[in-house]
Design a protein around this nucleic acid. Structure first.
Lengths: 248, 248
DNA sequence: ACCTGAACACCGTTCAAGT
DNA sequence: ACCTGAACACCGTTCAAGT
């Protein structure tokens, strides 16, 4: 009579988002979401195949909050700067959910849109397709980690413990042996709190854009004079051949 | 008689690491670790206060695998390149554990060592203390996310579903409406698999280093002509004042 | 000092029903 | 089509003992 369909994907995503913002990512639980809507946990399975789909939906939600700027006549790097700034703004609105985006940019239309604009600008800048793809992904996911690791943030923490945690962290760094880690001790303050958050993000974005411009200058396949081989083989996965299609 | 102290922090960390490499991060469980050593779950609490400490120890272990190059007479950016390469190498050896490092670089001596060397090189390059701190953190955590999101990797997946997942992902991108996401469709292949993994990491590192060099060129406080304000306020946390010291 | 036993509160998820 | 009920297999963690 009052409301015929209270439940929907969107309603649950909205609740989940409020929950992350309030109590952190691990508070997002099928049972809590159900309880919140006065419903059985099983009711959620009408809308999400499993818990991962709820996380997928959350990431999509964050990405849909990115207000992609319209293309204009300015130089490509200025437009990239604005696009990345919009991306960061969307993530910063829900810092504890930001980590969900890290591996999910290419899993929803909003993510495709951001990536496509990024690729478009890089292509216009002269990047080859492959280089543009790698570079775009790297720029975006770097910014996700910049948001996640913003100095002075402690993930999943409540307001009470927050300040205390920061102070403790700074005290720990300051108390280190200066003969072993002189620069860490000297930078203890800057490493544990952000004096100017806006500048922090401005610096991050402009460092990334500067990297893009420098990469663009180099035509292709930069033969670095690094003597060392980069990286090692990943530890081999020795899992029995179970039934396939575990991930759809 | 045979072995008096089979159990130790190190033994559990070793097992946990094997477990992550084999079956992904969520397979690391107090109960499974205990079972593996023929012991009660409670036995682990002698060595770790809680599960998070196990993750902390895993992150520390990865960071201790970074073979920090000795300082030499070469230009700072070349030395930074090698340091970052060593950092990436350590992460790539245990890709599913890499995400643990993201928020734990400043939580153990091995992490202090990497950070200190990074700060040392940036200071030598002329960075102010604060700029060096932010820049060093950003460079390191960006590389963590670069490893995590390496194209052609699917976290926590077994070998069987792996190839199928990649193919599906590429097919999905290729099947997108080219009028909506033309560049994504065109770059579907490059976005889903790494043709040359070494080049991928070489590019990532040199993009970061290029960003550092460009930032170094700019003296301080870069007044960008970005019209938009970057970022928004984070959603306020409205948690009741519960007992403090939840995080020690 | 080091490990056990039993229990608690909480998960995600299955299967079979209800209406 | 949409939700429920009961159950299962698995968590992390507490408290109180054992030796």
């Amino acid at each position: 009579l009052e409301l015929q369909t209270r439940l929907s994907r969107d309603v649950f995503v909205q609740t989940a988002l409020a929950l992350v913002d309030d109590e952190g990512l691990k508070s997002v639980t099928i049972r809590r979401l159900a309880e919140f809507h006065g419903v059985t946990p099983m009711a959620l399975y009408r809308y999400f195949d499993d818990k991962i789909r709820i996380f997928d939906a959350l990431a999509e939600r964050l990405l849909s909050d990115v207000s992609i700027p319209e293309p204009d006549g300015r130089p490509w790097h200025d437009q990239v700067t604005d696009l990345l700034a919009a991306f960061v703004a969307a993530l910063r609105a829900h810092p504890d959910a930001a980590i969900l985006v890290l591996t999910r940019i290419l899993q929803s239309n909003p993510g495709f849109a951001v990536t496509d604009r990024m690729l478009s600008l890089l292509t216009a800048a002269g990047f080859a397709v492959e280089a543009a793809a790698e570079t775009a992904s790297q720029a975006l996911c770097s910014l996700v980690s910049v948001v996640i690791t913003e100095p002075g943030r402690v993930a999943g923490n409540d307001v009470d413990g927050h300040d205390a945690a920061i102070r403790l962290q700074k005290a720990t760094l300051s108390a280190l042996d200066p003969r072993s880690y002189p620069h860490v001790v000297a930078a203890a303050d800057a490493l544990t709190r952000c004096v100017d958050t806006e500048r922090y993000y401005r610096r991050s974005i402009s460092a990334i854009v500067a990297g893009l411009r420098a990469s663009q200058a180099i035509p292709e396949d930069t033969a670095r004079r690094t003597s060392k081989s980069i990286g090692t083989k990943a530890a081999p996965r020795t899992r029995r051949p179970t039934t396939t299609t575990r991930c759809r």
